[in-house]
Each structure stands twice: as C-alpha cells, then as structure tokens.
C-alpha cells in the first residue's frame, strides 16, 4: 500500500484532503478536510502507537514485544508525545491565523 503523503513536496506545509471516494459506488465527496494528527506521523510511529494501544499502554509489554529495553521504548514514546504536542501547537496556530 502506498504511504499517505502528509507534507507538500513543494513548500513542506501540511496537506489537506480535497476529495474522498466510496470504493463501492464511486460516490465522491469534495471539500477541504484536515488530516487527523495521527495520520501525519511516519508509518513506524503509527505502528508503535497501535501496538501500544494493543498492549493496553504497558511499556513493559511493549519492551517485550519489540525486544527492546524499557527505557528505549519509553524514550520512543516520549518522542512521539513530543511530536503530538508539536502537531497540536501547529494546528492551533494555523486555526488562529485563519
């Protein structure tokens, strides 16, 4: 499956969704829809977040699953939390500017 592009290749600003289509009847909806924050993360980060939810948010279980040490997993989670906060800040700034 292709990786969802989230940044404009020309100016690196966040991309928005312009059209959505039903895979069954091919009905197309057009508009301007913002991507959810999670969609802007790398596939690796998304995979990490999904696995983290599946183990009920247990860092110990994540460490076992990924065969990494507890602090390595916790540091990775902290990085993702940092990115989530940054994305939220950027989105809020964007809304204020509009």
């Amino acid at each position: 499956m292709k990786i969802l592009p989230t940044k404009c290749p020309a100016c690196h600003n966040p991309l928005i969704v312009k059209s959505l289509v039903c895979d069954e009847c091919k009905t197309e909806v057009q508009g301007q829809y913002q991507l959810p924050p999670l969609a802007s993360f790398s596939p690796e980060d998304q995979e990490f977040i999904l696995n983290f939810l599946k183990v009920s948010g247990s860092l110990k279980d994540m460490a076992k699953l990924l065969q990494l040490s507890y602090p390595t997993v916790r540091n990775r989670l902290d990085e993702i939390i940092g990115r989530i906060k940054l994305t939220e800040q950027q989105n809020n700034t964007g809304k204020e500017n509009q």
Partner: peptide, 13 residues
C-alpha cells in the same frame, strides 16, 4: 497477548 497479531517493526534488529 499474541505476538503475531501485532505489527512489529524492525526496531529489534
């Protein structure tokens, strides 16, 4: 927990 149900990245290599 069943490991094969998870999407595991190549972090552990």
């Amino acid at each position: 927990m069943i490991a094969h149900e998870m999407n595991i990245s190549t972090d552990s290599k």
